[in-house]
Design a protein around this nucleic acid. Sequence first.
DNA 1: CTGAAAGCGCTTACAG
DNA 2: CTGAAAGCGCTTACAG
Lengths: 338, 338
Amino acid sequence: MDNPTIKEIALRAGVSKSTVSRIISGKGYSSPEARDKVLELIEQLHYRPNAVARAMVSQRTHNIGVLLYRRDHPIAAHPFYGKIVDAVLLEAARLNYSIFVTTDHDMSIRSADFMMEKRVDGLILISRLQRSVIDYIANFGVPYVMVNGSTDVDGVIHIVNQDEIGGSLIAGHLAEAGHERIFVIAGPQSHRSHNLRLKGFKTHIGQAGIGIAEEAVQLAETSTFGEGYDIMCRRWDAFREGKYTALFATNDMLAMGAMKLLLEQSVRIPGQVAVAGFDDIDFAAMFSPSLTTVRVDTGEMGAQAVRLLDRLIRQEQDVSPPGELLPRLIVRQSTRTT
Amino acid sequence: MDNPTIKEIALRAGVSKSTVSRIISGKGYSSPEARDKVLELIEQLHYRPNAVARAMVSQRTHNIGVLLYRRDHPIAAHPFYGKIVDAVLLEAARLNYSIFVTTDHDMSIRSADFMMEKRVDGLILISRLQRSVIDYIANFGVPYVMVNGSTDVDGVIHIVNQDEIGGSLIAGHLAEAGHERIFVIAGPQSHRSHNLRLKGFKTHIGQAGIGIAEEAVQLAETSTFGEGYDIMCRRWDAFREGKYTALFATNDMLAMGAMKLLLEQSVRIPGQVAVAGFDDIDFAAMFSPSLTTVRVDTGEMGAQAVRLLDRLIRQEQDVSPPGELLPRLIVRQSTRTT
DNA sequence: CTGAAAGCGCTTACAG
DNA sequence: CTGAAAGCGCTTACAG
C-alpha cells in the first residue's frame, strides 16, 4: 500500500483533516480523545507527513543545495572540499535540512538553475566559480553563502580561512629551522587562497631577512598532485645540486606530488630537503614522511556555512559575515629537525 | 520579486493555465500564436517550473536519496565511498535526478525515515548496514539498490565487485614474484568484501602451493589507516627478523598504514617486504612507494546503481541484477621486482 | 485548439 | 474544541 495521507487518518479517526493536522503540528487545540485516536492511527499506519505537500503550502522545502564547482574529479571525494561537504551534511542534519549535492563540470549555470526549480531554501557555493555564475545566482533572490571561493563579492557571506596568516606560519617555521634557500610551488594565483598563502609566506619570510629569488617561485597551473610531481621533475636539477634546503607548496597535494618525486630520487626528507604544505588533508598525516602543514578548519567552515545560511533563510536581521577562520601550524616529520 | 507562476504567465498571455501547461510540456495542441506569446513571456520573466508542485501532482519527485552508513568520518570525503558518490552524482545528472546525500552516524533508521518524508523516488544504500535497517527500508515500498553492502539480501539488487577474484589476482601476483612467506591483514570479516578478498587470496595462494600459517593472518577491527599502522606496530618483531617477504592487506588504507610503519623502521619496500592492497583509491598511486593493488571500478558501481534504480523507479519489467564487476590488478612500485 | 474543473496532500485563517 | 473552505502551483482528463 501507498503512504497513508492525512485524509486517511481523518477518515478512520472520525475527525476532519484540519483536526489531524493540528494534532500533528501541535498547534491549536484538540481534545484528548481525538488526540489519542489520531496518534494511535499514525503509529499504526506508519503515517509520515508528505514533505512535498508541506513545502507546497509553507513555501519552504527545508532543502539546501550544495554546488561544488570543480573542473576535475574527484568532487565529493575531494580530500579538501569533500571534508567541507561532510561538515555541511552533519550540521544540516542537526538543523533539519536535507542536502542536494550537485557538481558542475561545465562550471555552468545549469545545475544552479536545476536547484532553483527544486525550490531549495538556499544555496552553498563551494570552491571556485566564475563571476558570471555568481551574478546569475545572486539574481535568483535566494539566500546563498560561499565557502572558500576564488574571490569576495560585496555583501555576500564568504567563509574562508586566514590564508595569509597561514602562509606566515610556514614562513616562520622554516625560518626558525634555519632554512635560507627555499623553493616555492604556488597554486593558481587566480584563486584567493593560493594567492594569499603565497603573499603571507613571502611577506613574513622577507621580514625574517630571507630572500626568495624570482626563479625560486614556480607557479602551478592546477593544484594537483600530478602538477606538483611534474614541476619537481622539471626543477629537479636545482635540488640535485643542493640549491634548496626547503620547499613550500601552497597546498598539500602539490607538496606531496613534489615529495613523491624527491623520494624517488632518493632525496632524504627532511634531511636534505624539508617540505611543507597547506590544508592538512587526511592524507598529509599518512604520507611517509608525514607532511608538515597548516590546518584549515574545514569542519567549522561547513558548519558555519549551514548555520549562517539558515539564519539568512529565516530572514534574521543583521546576519553579520563571520570572522575568518584561524589556521594552525601542524609540524610533522617532513620538517622535523631532530 | 518571487518566481513567477504558470498563472502569472497565463494572465499576461491572455490564455488559460491549461494552455500554458500544455505549451511547456509540449503535450497536446496549441496554436502557434499562443505558443509564441507564452514562450516569450517565459523567457522574459525567467519562468522556472516549480518542481515541488510538479512532484505533488505527478507523484514523482525525481529525487534520489543516497544513504551512506559509516560509523566514522569522513563520509562523502571517504576515498572509496566518496568515489562511488561522485559517480552517482554524475549519472544522476545525466538521467535528470537530483541527489540527496545523507549520512548516518547512528547507523539508525532516522535518516531513512527522513528521506521517505521527502518522498524520494528511490534509495541508494552504500556500505555496511545492519540487517534491521535494510528490512525497515524494504518495508517502505520504495525501490532501492545496494552498493558494496555487507551482505546480500534476497531479491535486492546489490552492486559489488568480484572480490574473490580480486583476492586471487593478488595471490597470483605475489606467488609469481616468488614470495612464500606472506603476512595478511584482513579487514572486518563481517563485511562481504573483506571476507571474499581474504577467501580468494587464501584459496589461490594455496593452489600455488604456498601455505599461510594461522598466525600470519591478522584480523583487523576496522579498515582504517590507523588500524593498519597499529597492527604492524604489534607485529613488527616478525618483520624485523625477516620472517615475511610480502604483505597483503584487504584494502589500501590498511596496507598504507602498515607501510607507513615499515618505512619508519627503514624497511625497504619492495626490497625487503613487498606490499599489496585492494581498492585502488587515488592515494594508492600517490603514496611513496606507490601501492600495488586491485582496482575496483567505483565509477561503474555508482553509474550502475543509478541506472538500475531508474529502471526500478520506472517500473520496467525484468530488471535483472547486474553482473559483478571485474577487478583489475594494478602493479606499482610496492611489489615491483626490478 | 482551448478553458473550467478537479485534484495531488497539506496548512491556515475563519466560522461555529 | 472542531470542520468547511480556500489555496500552494502544477497536470490531466473532459467538454466544448
